[in-house]
Write a protein that binds this DNA or RNA. Structure first.
Lengths: 385, 385
DNA sequence: GTTCGATATTGAAACGATTAAATACAGCGA
DNA sequence: TCGCTGTATTTAATCGTTTCAATATCGAAC
């Protein structure tokens, strides 16, 4: 009974001239429907189907009726082009490699969102890679991405150690690439960064406006590209405002590969600062995690934030809005940065496609001060030694 | 001069019988090196190269010397197999679709890490998709993933609305799939969940042991699959411990698509609870974000956490450890869940490959209580009315 | 001196699309 | 009638692999 109902299918309107292939399709019941099927079903050749469905240049000459019939057939069969086969011929994989240096860094999530969203608009898929801060993992992933023939590569790296190999490999295969939060030496790779110097200035300017003069600083690790310009912005503003920075109130985080070590570092270094018995009414942390660690240490020592000490972070990672107290911070437009990186590499991809010339570019986006609850005007109550 | 040095390349040890193809390669300088190149260079046929490099069954018969020569040649030329061409023949794309319902939910990052890590072990790449909680986006991505012929699909969904279409599409194309944080009706899709009921029990048990008896609850939205079992676990424990739950101290979050609305909801509903003037010494929140919102509201109202009120969350998202006070919570082994999901679908992929039978499965992982600073034994100071 | 079973290697046909070049047929002016 | 241009469609090569089936060599066994 059952086998009978399998043999005599109720409806086979199109596969009338069914050969072995068609039989197989009946058995398998899960075979993908191919362009050949659409061709057969619509009564045209695969070439015509391809031309119509891709709206290729030659589609100008295809009769409207033909187009309609093919489109209808494709829809009815549920035809989906095979991206691999298409790639093999056309060299377009419709995928982009997206490499993070450590996705557990809260900095990354909004960037990922921005990248994903922009790629989605172009019908590109992101191939996700996370280097876990390990060089060999980075290289292995690079290998895998090249095998998958991504059309472009976006590297999100706040920690560094990308070596020249990356550059060489990419230009050899001429894959357009962009970095976010990090710049390569030379001009082979585009980059998107925040204007760190402006950001440093914003942070200090804010505290200065609030009347703070005795300010502690926890600087970023030397190996982070962001550290130096942020500090420079701070120094420049201090100079222009006639402030002096007390070296006894300045500490610098050690180099480390763990992005979440910022919290731990902020905590420990703030305790260290407190032990020095030098008064300060505000603290500028290298980034938000450091700031949160600092707040933890201050609170533990009985110094309330913001009543007794203001704290400013940097980045505006998502949790900064949720912390208690919520964090005043210098915002990086992370999602927009992801977006921009996609636009950049897409421009490159299209340029190569149309054999246009195209130059890499470096972008510095404007940071923005976000004032929340961790900063307050300095207390007027005299006790300022 | 320059063109001369291009014409007479210093070293061409292998491409001796160079035809037009080889010339093109010299010009292009960026042409991918193909298997044919390796074959030519090593002096064997492409077939042999393929067999050796993939360690295919027939490799048993290949002479060790041959293997070595081919491997050396491949390495020297920097040969990388073309994943697309390979797929076209072998039907193996070495990629897995990873669909999130909203990557900005902090719940997702550790899951993503777990998935990525497990896939990396198998040399599979994840194709990342984020539905932004939108059904049509989900469907469009599904389409794209199918075009790219992912071998499996992992869906991370704490919010629901996956319809039957997913199931149909997948089984039609027989792609093995697994969900994390959500179960499909029927048995077409495997799932990995935390044991929510056990988790609810853990939370209440902890507070009970600390002496709390007047406890407020903020339940999860009805449409979340997690809500009901967590509440059931709470009720069961209350019953077994002889506690009574005061309905006036129970609120339920409204349905919403924004995962970060939990914070807002926790804040508002805690204010609502405080206005009711019913004393409570502890609060169980649906999840960590809700708990953080609750803490914010309590603190704002002058109720210190944990001195005057303990708060327990659920999930143990990364920021729970960093919040002030750090959050006592019921931990979901998120990374392990991602890992497990990969193992499940890989098992399915291999089963189909070897034409073995294979059944979908449902997993409930054990939650774990993480005690931090937001809970404390109930104050003994008499004022417990 | 065939036949056989291993061992070692290769030829050639897929896989499912794209696309340059070819074909077929109008209509039309010379 | 011929050639030309434009429209409409198809043929066939190609992309870079994988893999089935075929070939070749060589002792060993009958």
């Amino acid at each position: 009974m059952k086998s009978q109902s399998l043999q005599f299918k109720p409806q086979t309107p199109d596969d009338s001239a069914a050969g072995g292939a068609s039989l197989k399709r009946q058995n398998g019941e899960n075979q993908a429907v191919t362009m050949r099927d659409v061709a057969k079903s619509s009564g045209f050749s695969p070439a015509t189907v391809s031309i119509v469905l891709n709206n290729a240049p030659l589609a100008r000459y295809i009769a409207p009726a033909t187009k309609k019939r093919i489109e209808v057939a494709a829809k009815k069969l549920g035809y989906r082009p095979n991206a691999m086969a298409r790639f093999l011929r056309s060299k377009r994989s419709h995928s982009v490699g997206v490499m993070f240096f450590d996705i557990t860094d809260p900095f990354c999530t909004p960037v990922l969102r921005g990248i994903e969203n922009a790629l989605y608009q172009c019908s590109y898929v992101p191939i996700f890679a996370d280097a876990h801060n390990q060089k060999n993992r980075f290289e292995r992933y690079l290998e895998m991405l090249l095998e998958h023939h991504v059309e472009a590569l976006i590297v999100v790296a706040n920690w560094l150690f990308v070596d020249i190999q990356l550059l060489a490999d990419l230009s050899k295969r001429n894959i357009t690439a962009a970095t976010i939060g990090w710049e390569m030496p030379g001009d082979a790779v585009s980059s998107v960064m925040v204007d760190n110097e402006a950001g440093g200035r914003l942070a200090l300017e804010h505290l200065h406006q609030m009347g703070h003069r005795k300010i502690a600083f926890i600087r970023g690790p030397k190996m982070l590209i962001d550290s130096a310009p942020r500090w420079k912005g701070i120094q420049k503003f201090a100079h222009s405002a006639g402030m002096t920075i007390d070296p006894a109130l300045v500490l610098q985080l050690p180099d480390s590969f763990d992005p979440n070590s910022g919290f731990e570092g902020g905590f420990r270094f703030t305790e260290e600062l407190l032990q020095r018995k030098k008064r300060f009414t505000a603290l500028v942390a290298f980034d938000d995690l450091t700031a949160l660690g600092a707040i933890r240490a201050l609170t533990k020592a009985g110094v309330n934030v913001p009543e007794n000490c203001s704290v400013v972070g940097f980045d505006d990672v998502p949790l900064s809005a949720l912390s208690a107290p919520s964090l005043t911070t210098v915002r990086q437009p992370l999602e927009a940065m992801g977006n921009l990186a996609v636009n950049i590499v897409m421009e490159g991809v299209n340029a190569r496609l149309e054999k246009r010339d195209w130059n890499t570019s470096r972008h510095k986006m404007n940071p923005e001060l976000v004032i929340r609850d961790s900063t307050r005007a300095v207390a007027l109550s005299g006790s300022d030694d």
